[in-house]
Design a protein around this nucleic acid. Structure first.
Lengths: 226, 226
DNA sequence: AGCAAATATTGCGCTCACTGCAATTCTGCA
DNA sequence: TGCAGAATTGCAGTGAGCGCAATATTTGCT
């Protein structure tokens, strides 16, 4: 119900140069499912939409749905695997001297810049997560994965073992920033606000509560403070 | 699937002085269900145990199970509501000058002292959570609730609004400590190790990564460092 | 004790997610 | 064109969870 990999058959190539007809068709079907499902979710709600509805609207057999996604929830988070991989790669690829948090910051900013153009489902997804406990749970599970890879990288930075306390605390706080980002991201990308949030978060990570302004009053649209 | 309150009928009194036969009986049944279910889970695993199994073993009708717990998962976390309430109360009741983190620390230490005598299912629960994704998800949901009440208290401490960034980051990091506690808590309470972990966590919360020792090597059994 | 209202238990039937398996259809390639 | 591998599908089943109505039990009251 929360596992990621798809199990039926082998997923078509995608990695080698030529996608091939087969792979392209599968990709297209996948996209159709996502499109159709998100539309239905938006219209009738997540719980108000059955797998049968989705299958019918996507013109596939109900059974076939599970060849593409392991659960109904997974459709809502269809990009998660890529995001996770991309983040892990970005952490791997950081320059010497660049901390894991620097990488997180850079990755997020780039992601947001890209998403602004490219994520037609962001608003729906946020709404669905907010109103559907099962999706909120899934979302937390996804974040926990991000947290894990981040914690590993932080551990390297700090020179501690991967299961030491500090990296996990720091990673948890860093990932909690994503919540804030989502909260303040309501649909319209505001790179300024995002940067403010990220800078406040980094200040906290580095210097703790001591490093934070005492009375930022309302909201988290922090006037960044190094 | 994750909501807390039980829905069938009104839960018997429990708050006024005299429990009454009805309430006592319900309480007894509830405990029976927990006992029986945890035993079955331990023997056959969470997924290997059906509601029907539990009902049969507890000598109630399957339908009746749902008068006591809203889901199979809820049985595993049967004390969560009390814990949450107790934590919220402790936060409410802190003395002037006592920070939310102080309260968290005190609450945890007391809890652990109590649990040592009183939590016969702790080990099983930890094992189940580790091996069952659905339970891990539930566990995260529970922690998120703790995080929310903690963040509110921290916001008061900091003089920020409840949805500002800082309190949430700090609360997330603080709650992440519970993970570590669980990891190192393998069955045998070790108040020393627990205090070490808590102190390291508090140091991080207050002073950030800057405040932490650079090379604690393996594990999180931190030699506390103010 | 006896009765009526409140509450708890139960059975029944239903919906829906999800799975294993085997039959069938399709695609890529020789 | 034909074949091997891969994808689609149907079928039958399991199990969680819910709404509802019937039944049983408890409680407060007289």
């Amino acid at each position: 119900m929360i596992y990621s990999p798809v199990t039926i058959g082998t997923f078509p190539d995608m990695s080698s140069e030529e996608p091939g007809l087969r792979a392209r068709k599968k990709q297209r079907t996948r996209e159709t499912i996502v499109e159709v499902a998100m539309r239905l979710f938006a219209e009738r709600g997540f719980d108000g939409t059955t797998i049968a509805d989705i299958a019918a609207a996507a013109d596939i057999a109900p059974r076939t749905f599970f060849g593409y996604f392991p659960s109904k929830e997974a459709v809502v988070f269809h990009e998660h695997d890529e995001l996770l991989a991309s983040f892990a790669a970005r952490l791997q690829a950081r320059r010497p001297g660049e901390t894991a948090f620097d990488a997180l910051r850079a990755w997020l900013l780039e992601l947001i810049a890209t998403l602004g153009v490219d994520d037609p489902h962001g608003d729906v997804r946020r709404r669905l997560i907010a109103e559907t406990p099962a999706l909120a749970a899934h979302d937390r599970a996804n974040r926990a994965q991000l947290e894990t890879v981040l914690a590993e990288a932080v551990a390297v930075d700090l020179g501690t073992s991967a299961d030491a306390l500090a990296p996990h605390l720091a990673a948890a706080a860093a990932i909690a920033t994503l919540d804030a980002l989502d909260r303040y991201y309501d649909g319209h990308a505001q790179p300024e606000a995002v940067k403010g949030i990220l800078d406040e978060a980094l200040a906290f990570l580095h210097g703790g509560l001591r490093a934070l302004p005492r009375k930022p009053a309302a909201g988290a649209r922090g006037k960044r403070r190094p």
